[in-house]
């Protein structure tokens, strides 16, 4: 990297790292340190190709997602997470069906949901972040993760089902759109060791 590239890269990191960190935090299930590591690795990779990248942000985002779903190599990361709620499910925290939740139970549900999201596999979480945080259509999710649309669909389906298992209080919620039409794709999904 020449001096100009160096300056451009530094500027990019300074301007965009906070926004990209949000994605990294979600992908890491709320583990801030893991998120910084993930983002740092993505930036280091981007620095290596800096002068050949047309859209740096899209490139870094893609690395973030792909890195996260192929994180077998980082088994040490699977340490205990700090979540706002004890892992045991809390009785009586149900959400009141399809839209009747008051503010406090909505907050409780979000806390439960975050705890459950943190316990999904990296791949499951990545698909949900792309679908529900980035609001991307299935085809774009498939392109970013380098898999088929069918895999995206089946992974979404299984991830939502897994969330319900992890937090039974979520059972009362109405089904998500993705749950209305079961997928026929049975591509293997990463199993959490």
């Amino acid at each position: 990297m020449d001096a100009q590239g160096h300056e451009g890269f530094r500027e990019f990191v300074e301007n965009r790292s906070s926004a990209l960190l949000k994605t990294a935090v979600l992908l890491s299930g709320g583990d801030r340190h893991a998120a910084e590591d993930l983002l740092q690795n993505a930036f280091v990779k981007a620095a290596g190709r800096w002068q050949r990248i047309d859209e740096p942000e899209a490139y870094v985002r893609q690395i973030l997602y792909r890195q996260q779903v192929s994180r077998w190599r980082l088994k040490w990361r699977r340490r205990e997470l700090t979540v706002a709620e004890p892992p045991e499910t809390t009785a009586g925290a149900t959400g009141g069906g399809t839209g009747g939740a008051d503010t406090s139970s909505a907050t409780e549900l979000r806390i439960l949901m975050r705890g459950a999201l943190a316990r999904l596999t990296a791949r499951q979480r990545a698909v949900l972040v792309l679908r529900y945080f980035e609001d991307l259509p299935e085809a774009d999710v498939a392109r970013i993760l380098g898999c088929s649309v069918g895999t995206v669909r089946s992974t979404t389906h299984r991830s939502l089902a897994r969330l319900r298992t992890l937090a039974p209080e979520l059972a009362a919620l109405g089904p998500a759109d993705a749950e209305q039409s079961p997928s026929r794709d049975f591509s293997p999904v990463e199993a959490r060791p």
Binding site: L26, G95, T98, G99, A101, A106, L109, R110, M113, R114, L117, L128, V129, Y132, F133, L160, L163, R164, L170, L173, G174, P175, A176, D177, A178, E179
Partner: peptide, 13 residues
């Protein structure tokens, strides 16, 4: 509230 909305809200929060 359905699952879609709750996942979305939790992630944004």
């Amino acid at each position: 509230m359905n699952m879609d909305q709750l996942v979305r809200d939790a992630l944004h929060e």
